[in-house]
């Protein structure tokens, strides 16, 4: 199997951006507002034309996509909400009919947690529930490649977890997923790999656990000393704790050892770019 290949360069908002997304992975795209990540994704979806560069998605140029190609793609847009006077089941069933090999309606309503709302009009649903209709419509056609743009905005925490499980199960079935999100924990929980886009360029790309030297970065040891809270950055936290333990002769008050979170790394990357610019 040949890996899915995508790369393109020179868009107004996107300046020489290269990306390779492999078939079957969950790929996260992070970046501040206006960094060009939505533009990038829209070009990949075939919804925006590009000024230069080469793009290949599932073996085709999305700018000249065939109907067949569209039937392999699923999209859940940012800020999008299905509207209209149809019921949930009618909406999803209608869109299923566009595809040659759609998923089972009951099954999909179950996974998005809308079985009980199947007969309800979409207009009468809450924001989070409508969002789940969007997701159901996005995956009903059994897409090879699914684009998710801020998919869980407006979800309560429990619904988010449920949604993550859905995404993981889709990925287990072999669906390639491109996820853009502001929620770093979401990207960290789901993505196999991710790219940080700033100023229309990829500034870092890799595994969420090792991105930007995260795994090898210095750890911070903090504790409560008699004179107040103390912090110490070190490459050898175990040694520091040993010393502290000897000093306190037992429990070290309010001891924590932390490595930079994905958020720290991400914010650091953005700051770096801003200073460079």
């Amino acid at each position: 199997m040949r890996g899915l290949r995508k790369a393109y360069k020179d868009h107004v908002a996107v300046n020489g951006l290269d990306l390779d997304i492999r078939r079957g992975e969950i790929f996260g795209i992070l970046g501040p507002n206006g960094a060009g990540k939505s533009t990038t994704v829209e070009i990949l979806e075939g919804h925006r034309s590009r000024d230069g560069g080469e793009v290949e998605v599932l073996g085709e140029d999305p700018g000249r996509a065939s109907r067949q190609w569209k039937s392999w793609i699923g999209i859940v847009w940012q800020n999008e909400v299905v509207s209209g006077e149809l019921t949930v089941a009618e909406t999803v069933r209608h869109y299923a009919q566009y595809f040659p090999d759609p998923r089972d309606l009951e099954e999909i309503l179950h996974v998005v947690g809308l079985t009980e709302k199947a007969g309800a009009r979409v207009t009468g649903l809450s924001g989070g529930q409508r969002r789940r209709v969007d997701v159901a419509v996005g995956v009903i056609g059994r897409p090879e490649l699914l684009f998710l743009d801020e998919p869980t905005t407006g979800f309560d925490p429990a619904a988010r977890r449920q949604f993550w499980d859905l995404i993981r199960s889709l990925a287990d079935d072999g669906t390639t997923i491109v996820l853009t999100s502001h929620y770093l924990d979401e990207v960290e929980a789901l993505a196999d790999r991710l790219a940080v886009v700033v100023g229309g360029k990829v500034v870092a790309e890799g595994d969420p656990a090792t991105l930007g030297g995260r795994a090898s970065a210095q750890a911070t040891v903090s504790w409560l000393a008699p004179e107040g809270p103390r912090e110490y950055r070190t490459d050898t936290p175990t040694g520091v704790i040993n010393d502290l333990a000897a000093h306190f002769r037992g429990e070290i008050p309010e001891l924590t050892v932390s490595r930079p979170s994905l958020e720290d790394i991400y914010l650091g990357l953005i700051k770096e770019q801003e200073t460079a610019a």
Binding site: K70, W77, F99
Partner: peptide
């Protein structure tokens, strides 16, 4: 409302 955008993404 974005319904057209959705329809455009459909294989239709």
């Amino acid at each position: 409302e974005g319904n057209l955008r959705r329809l455009r993404a459909m294989p239709m």
